[in-house]
Structures are given as C-alpha cells and as structure tokens.
Design a protein around this nucleic acid. Structure first.
Lengths: 201, 201
DNA sequence: CTCGCTCTTGTACATCTGTACAAGATTCGT
DNA sequence: ACGAATCTTGTACAGATGTACAAGAGCGAG
C-alpha cells in the first residue's frame, strides 16, 4: 500500500512520446467524475478492491488523472466518501421536506425507506461505507451523518427518547433487505414503527 | 485475480534447497488454523484486502500451506466463511439454551446481544461478511444462518408475526453500536423490544 | 510574444499478488 | 525394507498495483 522507496536520483527521460491530443481542461468536472467513479467501483468490487486504474477506467480518464487530483489511493477513496456524504445529506433534506407535508408521517417514512432501497446499488455502497466505519475512523463522518441526520429528522415527529429505537429498526430492516435481496415488508414496518412510537399507557 | 497463464513446459529445478526442517504433520490443525486466520485478517483489513500471504503469516505457516489446502484465494476465504458460519451456529444454540432457562427472556436476549458485542472484532467480521452478502451470493448462507436462526429462536417467545421486526431492531442496534464504537443502550433496547412484542390492545 | 503556471497524458518501476511447482520429509501398506 | 501417497516448505514468475515523473498542451500576466 505504501511501499518504502529508496531515494533515486532523477531518472533520465525514459521515453519521448510524440505530440499528444488532449481533452479540454476542466478540473472541477474531473474531480467530480472521479468521485462518482469511486462510488461505482466500490459498489461493484468493494472498498478493498478499489484501485486507481479501475476508477480511472470507470471515469474514462487516464491513470495519471487520478494521482494528479488525489495523490494517494486513500485520498481518492476519501473523495468518494465525501461525495457519498453529500448525497446522503441531500437525501435526508429531501426526506425532511417530504415528511413535513405528509398527513401520515409514519407511512411516509416507511415509503421513503422503500424508495431509498429501490436503488440497490447506491444503498449497498452507502451501507458498505457505513459498516466500514467500524474499522476505519476516516469513515465515521458518513456514519454519523446518517445516524444523527435520521435521528434529528425523527425528533420532529416522535418523542426524542423513541427516535434511536426507530432508527435502529429502520437500519436493521434496510440491512436485511439488502443482505437477503428481498423487498422491504412495508406493512410490517409501519406497524412496528407505530408500536415503538406509541406512548405507553 | 485469475491471470491467464501460458502453458509452460516444466521448469527445470530452479533452486536446490538444502535439507529443510519440517513441523510435524497435522492437516486438520492446519486447515483450522488457516480458517481462523482468515477471519482475523478479514477483521483487520476487510475481505477485499485479504491475501494468501497475510493469512499464512497470521497462521504462522508458510505461504505454500495456504495453496496446498485451499488452491485458490476464493477457496481460502470460503473456508473462513464456513468457519464463521459454524461459530454463528454455535452462538445461536447457546443463546437458545440461555433463553430457555431465563425468567425474563427479553432482558436475557438484550443481555446476550450486549455480550456478543463485547467481542468487537468478531462482531465486526460477522457483520462485514453479513453485509458483503449483498454483493456476493456465496456469502448468503451466513446471512441466512443469522437471520433465520435468530428469527426461529425468537418464535418460541414472541408471536411469530413480531419476530422479524424484533430481529430488525436488534440487527440495527448492533450495527449502530459497531459503526459508532459506542456501547449498546441496553435499557432502551429492552423497552423497545417489549413494545414490539406486546400484543396490541 | 514569451514566460510561467496549471493541467493532461503516457510511461517507468519497485513491490505485492495469485498461483505453480520442485525438492525434501514423513507416514503407511505391503 | 521399500515404494507410493501425502504433507511441508521454499522459490519462481507473470501480471496487477501504488506512485513518481517527464514531456507536452493550454492559457493568462507582463
């Protein structure tokens, strides 16, 4: 991963490449393209098998572009992570808007969860990154964005003390759906959420 | 991963190594040592970065031992997976015994979950494999062992229709504890489980 | 224009990886 | 005893990988 390298005196011009065609400059677009490509590669092969070359190929860019913008592989993956966090943030904001205008927030919430799972690939990436946070502290921000964001979202609708359990329930239900490849049991989930949020007599 | 290899005529004796000391033979022990080493390596670096050499080093065996018993890397990792499945099976059986004699099954269940999480490393591995099942069908058996095992376990104590929700809740709670590195909120989990299992009036 | 900066691309290379395999060591049936 | 099967270990090698870097292209300031 980070092999030792003995200091070598500057190599002589190894190769003289002839006049090269170049695509127009657009650093911002390249950064974005690389970040989203990271997520796609992670979705396919997992974080551990994500490589510079796979990302470059996926983004349709030469290998050198990856190391130019993200000097190290960790930087590259971190860029993907940052992008995922932004996507998640946006997702949570849209959930917030949706819930605010729903007549039955519980039903709407379960509906949102089901819709989220419809994009299997994206959900898989985010859960993979989420779980990887158990090992890699760099990934904690994503986990916290999700957990705290969802928890904060719920606190507008249910007793604050109940929110953690509801989040756990939803998280577990999503995890199971992903892992088994089955669809979410929306009806069951709705009644479970209602039970968790009904104030005890 | 599986590079093409042109058929090469048998290489001449590349090297002549002198008389080598050998450890006593014990194939079964080696298979076991390799399988558990796989799990340890997976816990540290994830499935994707698990290599023959890392496993061999962790098991204290020479590289050749890995390929002798498990010809391919997939075989090696599958062996770890099989081992994990057995561990999980045993764990579930022990839970079953424990619950059978508990005066308050709900409290006992939450206690078992907390105890399970005490071994962070092991829990992390199993959840990583669990989630990896979302991408890799080979890993489904582990996921199903856990899901169905736990669900079946619960059905002795709660209404069958409530079991899935309780499993989801517990799964989500464990995932969150792993991901955030915090301890389980056992009190909150107990009341949540009770709410999910209390028959509606 | 020309200098100097940023961006683009191709390529080099040390190291790691999966896997093959030869040469010994041990065990066991005969 | 002895030969075959099994196990152990070291080593080889082709390909993949992270990263460095040189050569060139585009572009703005003076």
């Amino acid at each position: 991963m980070t092999p030792d390298r003995r200091p070598s005196e500057p190599r002589p011009a190894d190769t003289v490449a002839a006049g090269r065609p170049q695509r127009p400059r657009d650093p911002q677009a390249r950064r974005r393209a690389l970040a989203t490509a990271v997520l796609e590669v992670v979705a396919e092969v997992g974080i551990g098998r994500t490589t510079h070359r796979a990302v470059a190929a996926r983004a349709g860019l030469p290998l050198g572009a990856t190391t130019y913008y993200f000097p190290t592989l960790d930087d590259l993956i971190a860029a993907g992570l940052r992008h995922a966090t932004e996507l998640l943030d946006a997702e949570l904001r849209s959930w917030s808007d949706r819930l605010a205008t729903a007549p039955d927030p519980t039903a709407a919430l379960v509906q949102l969860v089901a819709a989220y799972l419809a994009d299997r690939q994206r959900a898989t990436i985010e859960y993979e990154l989420y779980l990887a946070a158990a090992r890699d502290l760099t990934l904690r921000p994503l986990a916290e964005t999700w957990l705290h964001g969802l928890r904060g979202l719920l606190e507008a609708y249910v007793d604050g003390a109940d929110a953690p359990a509801v989040v756990a329930l939803l998280d577990g239900a999503m995890l199971q759906a992903l892992v088994t490849g089955t669809d979410l049991d929306t009806a069951g989930l709705r009644t479970a959420v209602r039970r968790l949020t009904r104030r005890p007599g």
